[in-house]
Design a binder for these strands. Structure first.
Length: 979
DNA sequence: AAGGAGATTTTTTTT
DNA sequence: AAATCTCCTT
């Protein structure tokens, strides 16, 4: 601690600079429980991050004693970045994470205590459905029968169990509830219901044991399991309380019962709990959040200090008043009434323009008018990124995307689904399908028509007709094309394209039996030239496609991780199952720096703000949506989360809060729009929320239907947004860099783009497999030593084997040879180390520090403390022949200088030594870090950061850079040719 | 005015 | 599958 005092002093003053009196009070409040009730736009995250900074700088807490919990990764990341900006010292040890990540960490640290296999895997909901399909020979539940096929049935069950866990309800509790119901059942229907519930409890129980057998966890279960663990193991709980005496929670209104219980357990040990929330922004009831959390907190901690933030820094008063009028319709269930506080928002930005409402005949008129208004805003100097179009449902966005596109307004829709619908992904799926099933003519057709092969449409139709007439698969017709007299009229372009398709397909088919799906797919991407084509384009659209391809590779890899037999046909079958079970990942996020109008769902917009907001589709039945009940609902008496209001009211009130969240995103201008005709048989009425918010005299009468033109308009296909070059970033834009990134950028900026920006999927190189396995083994060894656990040579070899992946090797013999070499080297390393054991004080320790706005992060392999002082050690697996070469490598290593720099920034002084340890030869390249050389490294990082912010990805081809580069055969600039 | 028949509509999403 | 809306009859 002592070395931290000096740099901390000036930061302490900065922590509260610019805060309002109420914010300052919230930030500086002492150690007891603290409830910060913070309305929209009052600086919730600011207060929380400043409080974290205050705890550290005032030395009430050490950074590693603080745990800050959020609900999304994005929120955690943002908070971490903002804390970093305030106090760039030692923050790396502060735990800022999602509830999920925290629960997962607790379980992984205490897996054995929790009765879990330490290597447990977490299944997504679609994966759970598949998991059950494979294991249940007969579907459970004869009485509850959700509509549809067995998959829907399983989906309903999985949803039910996940909901039960949100409410901290286990199988036993469910059974008790069923018994109680049976006991007081009067009518035969009630007895039936109780029986059905009993079936459900039995299913829940057997599902739990099936998961345990397979050492799996269902996604969302981490907190529930962590909670159980802490209840059953007081020692673990005590350690956790000791570890985190300070816990802070953002968006507290969105916690579910299990999460609340976990917080309660921690706080009972004296943990200082700070929560920030706003009951009017509770919008996650459907995933178990309880809108009455703030009230529950006040009752749980009657002595909690309470601060109410009402100074709104975001919106004009007119907007706030309308939003306030709307949400007041949720009285008397709101906190204001229940707790008798006043949290009406007071704008710090003046009255502004009142929000408007416009109603249209049809959705096309609505979307066109919105696009026109946006165009006008842009022509008056607004940036596209300052404008948002908010929708209630993903599907509502379509007409608006089209209208923006017609006017050429740059825009971006961030939905949460749709990866499989993307053209580039469908192309890959079609290819895999055709490989797995050569008679799949739909895939053959799709592939042939795709932009990759472009068989001319009339010719393709002719081939297709021929195939159906002869009842032969299209692929066979392709193969027969050169010799088939009846098809002699097919032109040369088509013949060439078909030949290309067959060549690519056959090349992949030859590898299919021996290679994993990912490898086969990669060969196709490369062989067909698709990757090269996309990589050569510099438009945002091409970048998005490459990113989506990378996402699809994640799905492929996810399968490879669990599959016994990862081959194309198996994967294709699995993919069908996944999609049937409802899996549809989001498309890759577009470049966040892209200057485009944002089209978002209200849920996605939470926490964001825009100068101008268009809240569209504000019609009855759309917003509020007409809800559908969950197929299996948790019995009422088991729902412990406190909901403000009850029954049908609760649903409407949640929709109203959602509308409130949407309205309060606007800083200056807010337009609500609606239409009579959204393509449904009945005309829509204006949303009651519009009437409430704007205090309209009476609901407008339904308008007449529009004409046939409307139906045609709706069929027009949605077009892609126009491509935009990414804008350069300002010098103070946050940027994170690792050594790898700096190194790759210096080698070649285009390589950096391929690897770190586009994340072009790469086949795994055997050297990487080898290096990773060695690192893993060494890490396990030194971790054991650090924790004082015994660790034998056999353990080292076992860890090496466990980390081994059979991918990228030239042959089976090659793989065996590499594995034997690794084991031999590790055994020798073990023996040599035994003679003079390294005593690490840190293993795989992460670090992060700031150079201006640039965050430099990384991980030391080993930190060793000896008589000479601190040494930072990095293990290398490459060969070095002589000691001189080892010394030279250490001397030239930018990596070592960066490590030295990190140590200097975080601990106040350069380490005594930095070392490269070559595992193969046992040689050590060691040196003292020179201040001058460290400064030079700092300069290099700054230079790379500057170039990255300028978006300079100009290729720097050279023999040295290109020869070892994984992209040399797709890169259009390569200075090296293999043939 | 009440009520029955029949038509119409049905979402958000964390790793 | 269930809630809500409109239309129509009484």
């Amino acid at each position: 601690m002592s070395d931290l005092v000096a740099p901390l002093a000036p930061a302490a003053e900065r922590v509260t600079a610019g805060l309002s009196a109420a914010q300052r009070e919230a930030v500086l409040h002492g150690q007891g429980p603290l409830l910060i009730i913070a309305g929209a736009g009052t600086g919730k995250t600011t207060v929380l991050t400043r409080r974290i900074a205050h705890l550290i700088t005032s030395r009430l807490a050490r950074p590693e004693q603080i745990l800050a919990l959020t609900f999304t990764d994005k929120a955690a990341l943002e908070m971490a970045e903002r804390v970093d900006q305030l106090i760039p010292y030692g923050y790396a040890e502060t735990w800022i994470a999602t509830f999920h990540a925290f629960g997962d960490k607790v379980l992984r640290d205490h897996a054995l205590d929790a009765g879990l296999d330490p290597g447990f895997r977490v299944l997504t909901q679609p994966e759970q459905v598949i998991f059950l399909r494979e294991r249940l020979w007969r579907l459970p539940l004869s009485r509850y029968r959700p509509p549809g096929d067995p998959t829907r049935h399983l989906q309903a069950l999985v949803g039910f169990v996940s909901r039960a866990k949100d409410e901290d309800v286990g199988p036993a509790e469910l059974r008790a509830c069923a018994d109680a119901r049976a006991a007081r059942a009067g009518s035969p229907e009630e007895r039936d219901d109780a029986e059905a519930l009993l079936e459900l409890a039995a299913f829940y129980e057997s599902y739990q044991s099936l998961l345990a057998e397979a050492s799996c966890l269902d996604f969302g279960d981490q907190i529930h399991r962590a909670l159980r663990l802490l209840r059953e193991r007081p020692a673990v709980l005590a350690r956790l309380r000791e570890r985190f005496p300070f816990v802070l929670v953002d968006e507290f209104q969105d916690t579910n019962h299990s999460q609340l219980e976990l917080l309660r357990l921690l706080a009972e040990g004296g943990t200082s709990l700070t929560v920030v929330g706003d009951d009017d922004q509770a919008i996650y009831r459907w995933r178990g959040a309880a809108s009455g959390n703030l009230i529950a907190f006040r009752e749980l901690f009657p002595d909690a200090k309470q601060v109410v933030l009402v100074e709104n820094h975001r919106s004009t008063q007119e907007i706030l008043d309308c939003a306030g009028r709307l949400v007041a319709y949720n009285n008397p269930y709101r906190l204001e009434v229940v707790a008798g506080i006043d949290k009406r928002l007071v704008s710090q930005r003046g009255p502004g323009e009142p929000p408007r409402h416009r109603h249209f005949d049809s959705v096309s008129a609505e979307s066109d008018a919105v696009a026109a208004e946006i165009e006008a805003l842009l022509s008056r100097g607004h940036r596209p990124r300052d404008v948002a179009v908010l929708v209630r449902s993903n599907a509502d966005a379509d007409p608006f995307l089209r209208a923006l596109n017609v006017r050429g307004i740059p825009h971006r829709f961030s939905g949460s689904r749709g990866l499989y619908a993307r053209e580039e992904v469908r192309l890959l799926v079609a290819f895999l399908r055709l490989l797995a099933a050569p008679d799949d003519s739909v895939s053959a057709f799709y592939l042939a028509a795709s932009e990759l092969y472009r068989v001319p449409p009339p010719e393709l139709l002719r081939l297709n007709r021929f195939a159906s007439r002869k009842t032969r698969p299209l692929l066979e017709v392709f193969r027969a094309l050169p010799d088939e007299a009846e098809l002699a009229a097919v032109g040369g372009a088509a013949r060439e394209a078909v030949a290309r398709l067959l060549r690519d397909l056959d090349a992949a088919a030859a590898e299919m039996a021996s290679k994993r799906t990912g490898e086969v797919l990669y060969l196709f991407l490369q062989g067909s030239g698709l990757l090269a084509k996309l990589a050569a384009e510099s438009s945002a659209e091409a970048e998005a496609r490459v990113k989506n391809i990378a996402r699809f590779f994640q799905v492929v890899r996810g399968y490879g991780d669990v599959a016994v037999h990862d081959r194309v046909p198996d994967f294709v079958a699995h993919l069908e199952l996944l999609r049937d079970a409802g899996d549809d990942p989001a498309v890759a996020e577009a470049d966040p720096d892209e200057d485009a109008v944002q089209v978002l769902t209200v849920h996605k917009a939470k926490g964001l703000e825009f100068a101008a907001v268009f809240l569209v589709g504000a019609a009855e039945g759309k917003f509020p949506v007409q809800r559908r009940r969950a197929p299996l609902e948790l019995p009422e008496e088991l729902v412990k989360s406190r909901l403000a209001g009850a029954g049908a009211d609760a649903e409407l009130m949640e929709e109203r809060r959602l509308f409130y969240v949407a309205m309060t995103r606007a800083k200056e201008s807010l337009l609500l729009t609606s239409a009579a005709d959204y393509g449904t048989a009945r005309p829509r009425k204006v949303s009651r929320f519009v009437v409430e918010a704007l205090d309209l005299p009476s609901p407008s009468p339904a308008l007449r239907r529009s004409q046939a033109r409307e139906a045609l308009e709706r069929e027009r296909p949605a077009a892609e947004p126009p491509a935009l070059p990414p804008a350069p970033l300002p010098a103070d834009a946050p940027l994170s860099l690792s050594f790898r990134q700096v190194d790759d950028y210096r080698t070649c900026p285009l390589k950096y783009k391929y690897v770190h920006r586009l994340r072009v999927p790469l086949p795994v190189h055997h050297r990487v497999v080898y290096g990773n396995a060695v690192h893993h083994a060494l890490q396990a060894m030194f971790k054991a030593r650090l924790e004082g656990r015994p660790f034998a040579a056999e353990d080292l070899v076992a860890a090496f084997r466990a980390a081994w992946v059979s991918e990228g090797f030239l042959s089976r013999a090659h793989e065996e040879e590499r594995r034997a070499t690794g084991e031999r080297n590790l055994r020798r390393f073990f023996d040599e180390d035994a003679a003079a054991p390294l005593q690490p004080t840190g293993v795989e320790e992460e670090f992060a520090f700031f150079l201006g706005a640039t965050k430099v992060q990384g991980r030391y392999d080993l930190v060793v403390q000896d008589a000479e002082g601190v040494a930072i050690v990095d293990f290398k697996t490459g060969t070095v022949r002589t000691q001189k070469e080892a010394d030279q490598r250490a001397k030239d290593s930018l990596q070592l200088d960066l490590y030295a720099l990190a140590h200097e920034r975080l601990r106040g002084a350069l380490p005594a030594r930095v070392e490269l340890r070559f595992v193969e030869s046992g040689r050590v390249g060691s040196r003292r870090p020179e201040p001058e050389q460290v400064r030079e490294a700092e300069r290099v990082v700054e230079e790379v950061a500057r170039a990255l912010r300028a978006r300079d990805f100009t290729a720097r081809p050279s023999y040295r850079a290109c020869a070892p580069c994984a992209f040399h055969d797709i890169c259009p600039h390569t200075a090296w040719h293999s043939e």
